[in-house]
Design a protein around this nucleic acid. Sequence first.
DNA 1: CCCTGATTCGC
DNA 2: GCGAATCAGG
Length: 172
Amino acid sequence: MNWTDERVEKLKKLWSEGLSASQIAAQLGGVSRNAVIGKVHRLSLPGRAKAGGTTTAARPKRTTSAPRAPNYAARVTTRTVTRTAGATVLKEEIEVDLVADQDLELAPNVVVPMSRRLGLTELSERTCKWPIGDPLKEEFHFCGNDSPESSPYCSYHTRLAYQPSGERRRMR
DNA sequence: CCCTGATTCGC
DNA sequence: GCGAATCAGG
C-alpha cells in the first residue's frame, strides 16, 4: 500500500489526536505500526515527547465519571485498569458493584469501563470484542479492553453476555 | 507478555 | 521513500 495524499492526511490527523502508531496503522489498514512510525518520522511530524509506552500527547481525561454511589453495602471491587489508549483514557478507576448483578441495567452506579474505541481490524485474541454503538454509524467501535484467557470479552462484558439483564431471577 | 515510539539500514 | 528488524522503555 502506498501513501496516498488521503492516507497521509489521515495519518497526520490521527497522530495529532494522540492515537498510537498501532491504532493508526489499524485504521489505515494495510500497513504496520512500524510503517506508520517510519512515515511519521519522514514527515517530520512531532513525535511523542518521551519514548516508551505512554502517549505523552494525549493526557488522560476521564469519560463521564461515575457519580459517587451511596453506601451500596456488600462487595464492591475497585480495580485500576491501565491502558494506553489514544485520545480516550489512559487510566481509569472502575468500580463495579457486584451486588448489582441482580439488576445491572437498573444500577446507574455501575460504570461501564472505558473502551479503547478499537476498529474491528485491531481486535486481537485478548481484546474484548464487545461491540459498542451502531455498526452503521461512525462512532461504532469495540470495547477493546483486555480479556482474560481467550475469553471473547473482558470481565465486565462477559457478565453481561452471560446473563441477559432482563431475566435475572433469584434462585433459592 | 502486553504495549509504546525511535532508529537503523537494506531494499 | 519505505518499513521490517531491532532497540529501548513502561
